[in-house]
Write a protein that binds this DNA or RNA. Sequence first.
DNA 1: CGATCTGTTTGCGATTGCGCAAAGTGACGC
DNA 2: GCGTCACTTTGCGCAATCGCAAACAGATCG
Lengths: 236, 236
Amino acid sequence: MVKAGRVAIDISLVRNLPLFRQMEPAALARMMTRATPQRFAKGATVFEQGADAAAFFFLLHGRLKVSQVTADGQQVMMRVVHPGDLFGFARALARPDYPGTAKAAVDSLVISWPMAEWDTVVEGNPRLAMNAMQNIGQRLDEAHTRLREMSTQEVERRVAHAVLRLTQKAGSIEPAGTRIDFPITRQDIAEMTGTTLHTVSRLLSAWEARGLVEGGRQKLMVTDAEGLARIADPED
Amino acid sequence: MVKAGRVAIDISLVRNLPLFRQMEPAALARMMTRATPQRFAKGATVFEQGADAAAFFFLLHGRLKVSQVTADGQQVMMRVVHPGDLFGFARALARPDYPGTAKAAVDSLVISWPMAEWDTVVEGNPRLAMNAMQNIGQRLDEAHTRLREMSTQEVERRVAHAVLRLTQKAGSIEPAGTRIDFPITRQDIAEMTGTTLHTVSRLLSAWEARGLVEGGRQKLMVTDAEGLARIADPED
DNA sequence: CGATCTGTTTGCGATTGCGCAAAGTGACGC
DNA sequence: GCGTCACTTTGCGCAATCGCAAACAGATCG
């Protein structure tokens, strides 16, 4: 847990990010006064499921995985946090604790505020409140999308959708295709789609044989997005 | 579509509801000026999936079911709207259209505002903004709960959870047990839990034989909540 | 540079829950 | 009071996918 004292955050770093856009410069400056920048090395835990929700966060750089463990020990990946996302806003869910555990998938840079600031900041910045609400609303929309998929699609389509979404949100374009730019395991994908490691592995192997993807240890590249999309959404 | 002209809404009807609590009386009065009360008879449609999101709503009285249809025609029930809930707030999801269709399960009374008011109202009422955000946040929490269940639990547990949740949110206590106080079909429950009508029917029949519930046409009463809870969460 | 650890692949049998089919049954309208 | 419609029940075979088991392979570390 790197506590970085009172280090001012350069406003130019954030002023153009969607979340903070249209905020009055003075208000933004005031908000950043209360913020603490923190670095998390790959693998480090930002917060733990069940812990008292003492702070909320914004991801500047890197990737995080947020997952939950059920009572009987099964993991479910609830979301991947991308730069520009708010996370750990338990207050907005009216919860006293974090519902999941957030871990850095790569070295990451976050900004955090004491949770008590949430109310102040939201009530004091109508513009930010709107933006934050949309941030949360998008998350709701995503959750609904996943629910719809889980309810109606077989495993293969769900996995295809999940992989395509990952390449869209976290893809780096290479000559041979689009690579998911952070380490991700078959287990991760299984936890995102409600299936098992084994099934994901089998699917990816089959896809690789058909030339749709190229796999590797914690690596995945989509070499034929069109083909994958056809699996995800068989047109008519 | 009952358009009720400029009928003022009695502020005393809403001032004590959680969503509007702590708002300044003047601001609340102003907000209600813009609102239109509407009644929807059982079975009527409040808004349709894909339609231009022209208004957002608040349920005063009744019950609504919101469901989505997938491209291949399968229904998924996204939520049941209870009195005191906001719904149809597409703007907060940054969507131009309604993601689902809302139908009255019983005669219902709603208040609606033109969607353009959303921004005004949220930006102009910090207190309301917080409350609305929590309303949406709760919905996110619920979606995550369902995702977790869909990912890790077999059908029987999911259905048990769904039924228990319904009795908690919409249960009327009777001598013999807790009745779900609006008409609900096995198909509905199937669409809430990602399974089929047939499987739900089989489960309920089995439960009825064990004395846990009592079924009927569009009816369901839980007669042994403890027993059902044991199915939902087998302790250790 | 070998040992070890973590992540991956693959086979096979066991189940769960689905899909199809067909028969009941309560509610409502005429 | 009867017909119809919507909702429900139940049986049966099949397919998807899980669970277990075992072998394999990059990566990391001393």
